[in-house]
Design a protein around this nucleic acid. Sequence first.
DNA 1: TGGGAAGTTTGAATCGTTCCATCGGCCAAC
DNA 2: GTTGGCCGATGGAACGATTCAAACTTCCCA
Lengths: 337, 337
Amino acid sequence: MISIKDVARHAGVSVGTVSNVINRPTLVSADIRARVTAAISELGYVRSESARHLRAGRSRIMALLVLDIANPFFVDVARGAERAARGEGLGVMLCNSGQDPAEEAEYLSLFAEQRVRGVLITPADAGGVNIASFRRHKIPYVMVDRVGPSEESCSVSVDDVVGGQLAGQHLLRAGHTQIAYISGPDSLAQCRDRRAGVTAAVAEAGLPAAALTVLEVDQMTVASGRDAGSRLLGLAHRPTGVFCINDLVALGVLQAMFGAGLRVPGDMAIVGYDDIEFAAAAAVPLTSVRQPAFRMGQTAAELLIEETGDGGVEHRHRRVVFQPELVVRASSTARRG
Amino acid sequence: MISIKDVARHAGVSVGTVSNVINRPTLVSADIRARVTAAISELGYVRSESARHLRAGRSRIMALLVLDIANPFFVDVARGAERAARGEGLGVMLCNSGQDPAEEAEYLSLFAEQRVRGVLITPADAGGVNIASFRRHKIPYVMVDRVGPSEESCSVSVDDVVGGQLAGQHLLRAGHTQIAYISGPDSLAQCRDRRAGVTAAVAEAGLPAAALTVLEVDQMTVASGRDAGSRLLGLAHRPTGVFCINDLVALGVLQAMFGAGLRVPGDMAIVGYDDIEFAAAAAVPLTSVRQPAFRMGQTAAELLIEETGDGGVEHRHRRVVFQPELVVRASSTARRG
DNA sequence: TGGGAAGTTTGAATCGTTCCATCGGCCAAC
DNA sequence: GTTGGCCGATGGAACGATTCAAACTTCCCA
């Protein structure tokens, strides 16, 4: 491997000069600069990020750890983060915890060893043990799609209570009197908040608590959506409208309904969450609660950059909360009773 | 930041001993080992990957550069690669070229600076200029979803000619006599090969070359699928069956057909490619050509690991070619003629 | 002509590891 | 009693870049 020494020797100058040519070209006279530049391209020299990082003490990579990379919502978050990072010459390392706290912990220790600049994380670990390790190792982080104590970190999230409420109100106003909420693991704040929202909507509508049935799935995927859909059909008081924790689950429920010969929205109205691109392309286009995924990723990265920036910018942790928005489509638009 | 020196001082031993405790514990007596271990956890020491990498000369990260991270096909590839890498204690850095050769080049130089162990790449650059830079910098790489000269690298691909043929035959056997192929950029080998396949199918069926219309889209996304769908409807001899370069495009075409009030498959049969999970959940479940995405990623990573492995395993570049498989669903099953 | 300023280049120290030669004990064998 | 060997621990030399004080050139002006 070609090192800066080889370049120096080849150009007949010292390593310090080569470094200057690369990093502070104006300090070097034109002819030497040319000689060094020629040597660099002649030898195909590429500087070693490890070495400069070791010397500088800070790396040029930020990590993004999401719950489910197969969910297009997180892909959009990633694109937003990448855009912001790119602008600062930083790289983004995209990783997937798969909602597994153990996996998450493994990635976090990888990040610690890599001395990443900081981490954007959608936490999978309810207890916050993994998050606590950030503090221990003094790794800056930004919570994405979840708020934490603001004295510890920034966060970027969407008001999930409002999101749940929007979905619930929409179903109830359409005349449904028995609805279901298919939630993800209760350990995720998103799931709890959306439940609170839909519960509030039921109460507002003057309906008894029993008007809402809550089912839970482990994985928030199409496959577990199918399962949940079947369970839904087996309920004693079968609901006529269902709100799903995300669009993947909603698509699974949709498939289950088709499989059972039910019509959507005639026999079952469905509302999803995230408004992924595929929601509009579904068998019955999905009503969904939209979250500004790209902007969330972008904002999260910007906050991290501000926090870890070299510029003399003062940083105070902030919570950025976006508002969700209901996108109504065919899967919920047949009026009832 | 706590370094190995701090640990040594705290435990009252030399840095060499600490290093031994971490890397070759059997060489160290039990009591010292205990003392060092205690010091490590007491101080919260995390070893620096940069420093060990600098010393070792090789990193523990492999890069995966895909054409479109929003395409679930590539997400599956990534998961396969990650599985294989994990087994070897390697990390995967997932990046997205977005089919843009300039973006691709930028990532490649990032990888070179990082001294990644190797790169799994789905090339976006037709000319092979970017690929050539691998040779120049002696970076091991594996081509994914594309074959190259096998004396230079391994590759993992699917026989795209067969894939195109399967799709074409399927449409022709269903009685369509005028079909379309919506391709991606001709610079991508996948697009050319599938075209060759479908062209061959048309010839086999004894139809004139004019029976096949080829449209091209820049981006292989749902949005450009919608555009292509509209263009399709404007054709003089409107085809009755269309084969799309991937499922995203196919979903877009499906939306365009709905928008125009056409029935699928009655007025237009549609065949996609990749068999992503959403294909089955579409408005009309999509017929699609399935590729073993997960296994492709896994195999690619394994090949790279073999090539760059420390084990005395002899490595010879290989081409692994998987066979595609047609999955028939409702979007193409109405018989004609 | 001497000396200071300005402009260039150098060489060494440093970052945190790993690896290797070496060293001090200790024990066994001659 | 000397030698040889082994075990455990040590210290220092790398790895490749950056940084900074110091050294060396010019050049100009007094």
